[in-house]
Structure formats: structure tokens, C-alpha cells
């Protein structure tokens, strides 16, 4: 028996969510008094995972896997789970993680619970807490199958150091037929993605028009954050769809979410509520967002934001 974590990497490097998934896996391995095994694919620095508690690292190195293919990767995770006799398989909630997890569970005839935010409250029956109803509620969900697949919500458990001396092994799984082929990847060069960002700066209709978006972009830049927007802003074509956050757009679970000229409609809040600290800048003190935020400034964005950018530049130069 073991706990298996798929530690995702991109161009050889682990993302923070991989460390979070390993930290989470460690907790469950301790609860079950068993080994934590981490699976890596073409990762350069696999041994790093021992810092978060992996007892064994199984490494796939295969050039044909340089572009991510969901079918191939889900088959590899399932093969690793079978080889390692894993009782629990943990997968992160990156776009790749969400793509593969249901397939892994189906191959393993396992129960799958996504959006999990805490370590199991009980291991028999195995019970986890997950976000449901678009962040308007939580469910305590029992998993009764022998193998359990858990999709860990981003920025929920945190990264926890736990030093182990891990053994490392090469793993050569069968490579499944890909079925789907990648022909191009278009990344917004030089921009932090909403999924990866610790800080997200978001603009709404209160900004009046796309010509004012330098405020949002400049603020995001001084904070090292990503830019986002409310749904009407993307529907109006002021900003691209991939910036639309909320219940029907991208979910945000960052450390800091700054909402500027956004009223705080229920559908918007549902998608961003999982962020740890929310700041609202709005001219209307009655805007519903003030009820959902930790901090707020009542004021005109066109006055407040330029000041904030200037003061943050000063702050950055001192810190």
C-alpha cells in the first residue's frame, strides 16, 4: 500500500502546486502510516521532492513526452498507481491535472473527488472536504472504493517542508496511443497566468473602457501579478475571454485578489471567493463586493490606482 502523487512539471521545472500536492500527499501517507511515492515526468530536479516528504520518487524520462498529452499521462499515472499498489492518488488542479484526473480514476475503477481543500477528516470511511456549488458551500465526501483519486484544489493545503531521504527509481511505463495531437501552443509571453499567479489584479466595467486598462496592467506589473476581468468586460471585447474570471469563467484562488471597478455580483464572487485576501476599490460604498472583501478603499479608480502604483514602486524599492 502507498500514497502516490503526480508531481507535475513544466519544461522540466516543478510548479508550486507540485510541492503543495506532495505536501498534501505526505499528510495522508502519515495518516495511513504508509509511504509517499512521487511520480515525475521529464523533471530535471526530481530529488527536490524529498524536501516535501516523498519517500520514493519514480521518474519517467522520455523525449516523446515533451508535450503534454492527457491520454498518455493518465495512462502513466494509472500504471504507476498499479505498480506501487497505491491506495490514494493525488493530482493537482492545474489545467493538465483537471484533464487527466477523471481518466486516471476511470482506468483504476476508483472514486474521484475534485476541489479537495483539506486532509481527510477520517481515513475509514475515507472522508474529504471539497468545494461545491461554486464556492457557495463545502461537501464532506466519503470515498468507498479501494483506490481513491483526489484532485487537490490550488492554494488550499499549502506547501509544507518535511525532510525525507528519498530513494529514486527510473520508471518505464508503456506509452499509450495519444489520440489527440498538439499542433501549437500559444502562451501569452512574459505574462503571469491567472492559474499560476499569487496576486491577481482584476478590472470591471467601472474602468469605463479598454483604453484605461493600463491601470490594471501597470498595477499587476508592480505586484508581479496576473490581470483578470469581470464577465461583461470580456463580453464587450475590452479584454480577451481568457481573462474572464468568475463562476462561468476562470476560478481564482490566489493569495491576493484586487477588484477594481467591479460591483461584486454573486457570479463574480463565486469564482474569486477562494482567494485568501480580497481588496476592493470602488467608488460606490454600497457595492456588494465590500461584503466579500477583507480590505476596501471607497474611491475613484482613476485617482486611487495611479497613486497605488506609484506608492508600490516606492515600496518595492525599499523592500
Amino acid at each position: 500500500m502507498s500514497v502516490l502523487v503526480f508531481a507535475e512539471s513544466s519544461e522540466g521545472k516543478f510548479k508550486k502546486i507540485a510541492f503543495e500536492a506532495v505536501s498534501y500527499g505526505k499528510k495522508i501517507a502519515q495518516q495511513l502510516s504508509t509511504q509517499l511515492i512521487a511520480l515525475t515526468i521529464n523533471a530535471e530536479n526530481a530529488s527536490e521532492l524529498s524536501t516535501y516528504g516523498a519517500n520514493k520518487i519514480i521518474k519517467v524520462n522520455n523525449e516523446t513526452l515533451s508535450t503534454f498529452n492527457a491520454k498518455v499521462v493518465s495512462s502513466i499515472i494509472a500504471q504507476a498507481a498499479t505498480q506501487e499498489n497505491a491506495e490514494v492518488v493525488i493530482i493537482d488542479s492545474s489545467s493538465n491535472g483537471l484533464y487527466v484526473a477523471p481518466a486516471v480514476a476511470t482506468i483504476l475503477d476508483a472514486g474521484y473527488v475534485s476541489n479537495v481543500i483539506e486532509a481527510p477528516s477520517n481515513t475509514s470511511p475515507f472522508t474529504v472536504k471539497r468545494k461545491t456549488f461554486s464556492n457557495k458551500a463545502f461537501s464532506h465526501t466519503e470515498i468507498s472504493s479501494a483506490v481513491k483519486v483526489i484532485g487537490l484544489a490550488k492554494n488550499s493545503f499549502g506547501v509544507v517542508a518535511s525532510d525525507e531521504a528519498a530513494t529514486e527509481e527510473d520508471f518505464s511505463p508503456e506509452i499509450a496511443n495519444s489520440g489527440v495531437n498538439s499542433t501549437a501552443i500559444n502562451k501569452n509571453a512574459g505574462k503571469v497566468s491567472i492559474a499560476d499567479a499569487d496576486i491577481v489584479v482584476s478590472g470591471g466595467r467601472g474602468l469605463k473602457g479598454p483604453e484605461n486598462w493600463n491601470l490594471i496592467e501597470d498595477l499587476a506589473e508592480v505586484l508581479g501579478g496576473a490581470t483578470a476581468c469581470s464577465k461583461p468586460v470580456s463580453d464587450l471585447g475590452w479584454r480577451p475571454h481568457n481573462e474572464h474570471v468568475g463562476q462561468t469563467g476562470k476560478p481564482v484562488a490566489s493569495n491576493l485578489y484586487i477588484a477594481i471597478g467591479i460591483s461584486g455580483a454573486i457570479q463574480h464572487l463565486a469564482g474569486v471567493n477562494a482567494s485568501k485576501v480580497k481588496v476592493v476599490i470602488n467608488i460606490d460604498p454600497e457595492a456588494p463586493f465590500f461584503k466579500a472583501a477583507e480590505y476596501g478603499i471607497v474611491g475613484d479608480a482613476f485617482e486611487v490606482v495611479p497613486q497605488l502604483i506609484e506608492k508600490l514602486k516606492e515600496f518595492n524599492s525599499k523592500n
Binding site: A110, G111, F138, T141
Partner: peptide, 17 residues
């Protein structure tokens, strides 16, 4: 293989500063 055995609503938020 999975069952939601109970639900919970998010805790009331403290007031915005």
C-alpha cells in the same frame, strides 16, 4: 464510489476593513 455525506456553508466573513 463517492457520496456527499454532509454539507457546510462558508463561515460568516468578518467585516471589510
Amino acid at each position: 464510489s463517492t457520496k456527499d455525506v454532509s454539507f457546510e456553508k462558508p463561515a460568516e466573513k468578518s467585516a471589510c476593513k
